[in-house]
Simulated assay, not measured.
Amino acid sequence: MLRTSLFALLLLVCQVALGQTAVPYGNNPAAGKYATVRGVKLYYEAYGAGPPLLLLHGNGGSSKEFAKTIPYFAKHYRVLAMDSRAHGKSVDRADSLSFEMLADDCAALLTQLRLDSAYVLGWSDGGITALVLALRHPQKVKRLAATGANLWPDSTALTPELWQQMKRGYQEGRTQTFTDAGRKNDWKVFLLDWRHPHIPLSALANVKAPAFIIAGDRDVIRPEHTVAIYQNLPRAWLWILPNSGHATLHEHANEFNEKVDTFFKARTILPPSR
């Protein structure tokens, strides 16, 4: 036991010396801050310097999902990795959630930080929020990248497997009375994806910011739904990653980061082919 402890201590000392200690993204006191906006205490972490980049996580997740994203972009951007209300360290005691609420939170946070606009990268629910943010607060979004996003919650947008799983979850939970605060919050977060979003394809014509629409070829979002999102945006890129599921930014982290960065820096964004 003593030898094992000494070995662990020696390994830690070597990692520190080589600058290899793991950063606790999503729970990093050195980078974490709270901002009270719209009556909600939002947690976010800030890294790097340069043009602001807002990172938005998926349902039930937190900013720790961007552990493979933040180190790359923090070299050239001021990265803001936010925990959405009712997620991670962000506190929300309201009874319901909507993507409009989440998008308005993002806009309010940027305003409080005195940022006129930001690049936005969203995964899953974060991708939906990025699109809603661009619709409701167009002046706040320079460009957006959304991976694994859907516009409505049914089997025409989601794979049959995911939709059946969600239906079972709803049937199991709808008759329960949640007295525990944590389980009550989890149910509220589940209902966000069960009931929302409801964005008509025609509304995407109002997105002024250039958009990069991304999904895996084995994503839980139907590929034809992802393509339809791309086709209805005025200025957009499309990327369907081969050999990838829903977690594109994890499964292909290096390529993902480079492609998104290239999009953010591209001089022109051609409209999609009709």
Rank of each mutant, 00 (worst) to 15 (best):
G216W: 06
T156R: 03
A8F: 14
W194F: 14
G173R: 10
A157K: 09
A145V: 10
H225Y: 04
W163P: 01
N232Y: 10
L270H: 14
N254S: 13
I214C: 02
L238F: 03
C106D: 11
L131W: 12
P52F: 00
D105S: 05
K140N: 07
F263I: 11
A86T: 00
R218H: 14
K142D: 14
T262Q: 15
R183L: 13
V220N: 01
H252R: 00
G48L: 07
G148W: 05
F178K: 03
P200V: 03
E100A: 14
A30F: 10
G50H: 00
L191S: 14
L204K: 08
G173S: 13
K75C: 04
L56H: 05
G61M: 12
K167P: 04
S96L: 13
M166W: 07
R195E: 14
Y230M: 00
Q20Y: 03
V23S: 01
R267E: 15
R168A: 02
T248G: 10
R85F: 02
L113H: 03
Q164F: 01
T159A: 06
D125N: 12
T4Y: 11
V40R: 01
L121C: 11
K75P: 04
R78G: 00
V141W: 07
T156H: 08
D261A: 14
L133D: 08
G32S: 02
G169S: 08
I199A: 09
V189R: 03
L158I: 04
D193I: 13
D180H: 12
G148Y: 12
C106G: 04
T159R: 09
P234S: 12
A74S: 08
I128V: 15
G122S: 04
R93M: 05
G32I: 01
L109M: 11
D261L: 00
G39D: 04
H137L: 07
E161M: 08
D261F: 12
A209N: 05
A35M: 12
A205V: 11
T111V: 11
P271H: 12
E45A: 00
I199H: 10
G32D: 00
Q20V: 01
A67H: 10
H246I: 05
K184M: 05
C106Q: 10
H246S: 11
E224D: 11
L131N: 08
A145H: 08
C14I: 15
I213N: 02
L9P: 04
A236C: 00
Q231R: 13
L54E: 03
P51W: 05
T156N: 13
H225S: 04
E100N: 05
A22V: 15
D180W: 08
R3F: 09
F7A: 15
V79Y: 03
G61S: 12
R85W: 00
L6Y: 09
A181K: 08
S5Y: 13
E161G: 09
L241W: 00
T175D: 15
L80E: 06
K265S: 14
R78W: 07
T226I: 06
F99A: 04
R93D: 13
G126S: 13
M101T: 08
L121T: 06
I229Y: 01
L233I: 13
R218A: 12
A22F: 11
T129D: 12
G32V: 06
A86E: 05
A22I: 13
K68R: 14
A118I: 00
R114P: 04
